[in-house]
C-alpha cells in the first residue's frame, strides 16, 4: 500500500504512487492522474531477474546475482536518502543490467539483440501468448537519441561496461517534450528511458505489461525518435495477454494511456 500524500514532504518530486509530479512544465502533461491505466506491481525475485537477463540478453556475465542485488539495493538506498527523490521508490522500479555492446547504432542493437531477447524471455514466461513486432522495417540507421534526454549517457556507458540501473515507468500521462523538461530537473544519474533500458526491464520482468483486471499503460521508448521525425516514436504495449512493439505518432501530445520511463544509473 502507498502512504497518503500528506505524509510526503512538500519538496518531493514524486507523489504517493511514485509518479513524477509535472509541476511547472511548459509542455503537455496531466497535472493529476486518476491511475486508470496502471501497472500491476510485479514480484521482483532478483535471482530470477538476473537469470533472465543473463539467459535472454547475455547481460550480467561479469556481475553475479549477489553483486546485482547489492548494487540495486545501493541505488535504492541513495534514492530513499534524498527527500526530493525518495517517493520514486513507492512506485514500480525494475532492476536491469545492460550488456556491454560495442555497436553504435541503436536501431541495429534493438533489432539484433534486444527485441529477440524480449521475444525469448516473454515466450519462455508465457508460452501461450505472443510477443509481436508490428514494425516490419529494419530499425538500423532509423533512430536517434533526443537532445536533452541524457540517454546518450546510458548508451555510452553500455559501450564501456555492463550497466546496472533501475527503470521507473513514472512519467505517466506526460508528452515526450514534457518528459524531456522533467528529466532536466532531476539529478545527473537520471536519464529518460529509451530502447535498451526499457527492453532490459521487460526481459527481466516479462509480466510488466500483463494486467488481467484492467489495462496497463503503453510504454514509450521516449528518448528515441526517428531521425528527422521527432513526433514519431516507438513503444511497447500490451494487447490482451500479449506484448507488442510498434511505432506511432505522438506529435508531442500527452495521453492518459501513455507513460514514459526514467532510468536511474549508478554514478561512476
Amino acid at each position: 500500500m502507498f502512504a497518503t500524500a500528506d505524509t510526503l514532504p512538500d519538496l518531493s518530486l514524486f507523489d504517493e504512487s511514485g509518479r513524477c509530479l509535472p509541476k511547472g512544465l511548459n509542455a503537455p502533461a496531466h497535472a493529476r492522474s486518476r491511475r486508470y491505466f496502471r501497472l500491476q506491481p510485479p514480484r521482483l525475485d532478483m535471482p530470477n531477474l538476473h537469470a533472465r537477463l543473463r539467459q535472454h540478453l547475455g547481460a550480467g556475465q561479469g556481475i553475479s546475482t549477489q553483486d546485482f542485488c547489492t548494487r540495486v539495493d545501493a541505488l535504492r538506498a541513495n534514492l530513499q536518502a534524498d527527500p526530493h527523490l525518495a517517493a520514486i521508490t513507492r512506485g514500480i522500479g525494475i532492476p536491469f543490467i545492460l550488456p556491454r555492446l560495442e555497436h553504435h547504432d541503436v536501431g541495429t542493437v534493438l533489432d539484433k539483440r534486444y527485441l529477440p531477447a524480449i521475444a525469448s524471455a516473454f515466450g519462455q514466461r508465457f508460452p501461450d501468448y505472443r510477443f509481436t513486432s508490428h514494425h516490419t522495417r529494419p530499425l538500423a540507421g532509423l533512430l536517434g537519441v533526443l537532445e536533452g534526454s541524457r540517454h546518450e549517457r546510458l548508451i555510452e556507458a553500455s559501450q564501456e561496461r555492463e550497466v546496472v540501473g533501475l527503470y521507473f515507468p513514472c512519467l505517466s500521462e506526460y508528452s515526450v517534450p514534457a518528459a524531456l523538461e522533467q528529466v532536466a530537473r532531476l539529478p545527473d544519474n537520471f536519464v529518460l528511458a529509451g530502447g535498451y533500458d526499457t527492453s532490459a526491464a521487460l526481459v527481466a520482468c516479462p509480466e510488466l505489461l500483463l494486467r488481467t483486471d484492467g489495462y496497463p499503460p503503453l510504454l514509450w521508448l521516449s528518448a528515441l525518435a526517428e531521425n528527422g521525425k521527432p513526433g514519431i516514436g516507438y513503444h511497447y504495449e500490451a494487447y490482451g495477454y500479449n506484448l507488442t512493439f510498434n511505432r506511432r505518432p505522438h506529435l508531442g501530445m500527452a495521453a492518459e494511456y501513455w507513460s514514459h520511463g526514467l532510468s536511474v544509473l549508478e554514478t561512476v
Binding site: F37, Y215, A238, Y239, A254, A255, E256, Y257
Partner: peptide, 14 residues
C-alpha cells in the same frame, strides 16, 4: 481524442 486501448463507453466505469 487521445489514444486508449479500451472501449470508453463499454469498459471505463467512470
Amino acid at each position: 481524442g487521445p489514444h486508449r486501448p479500451d472501449c470508453l463507453i463499454g469498459e471505463d466505469p467512470q
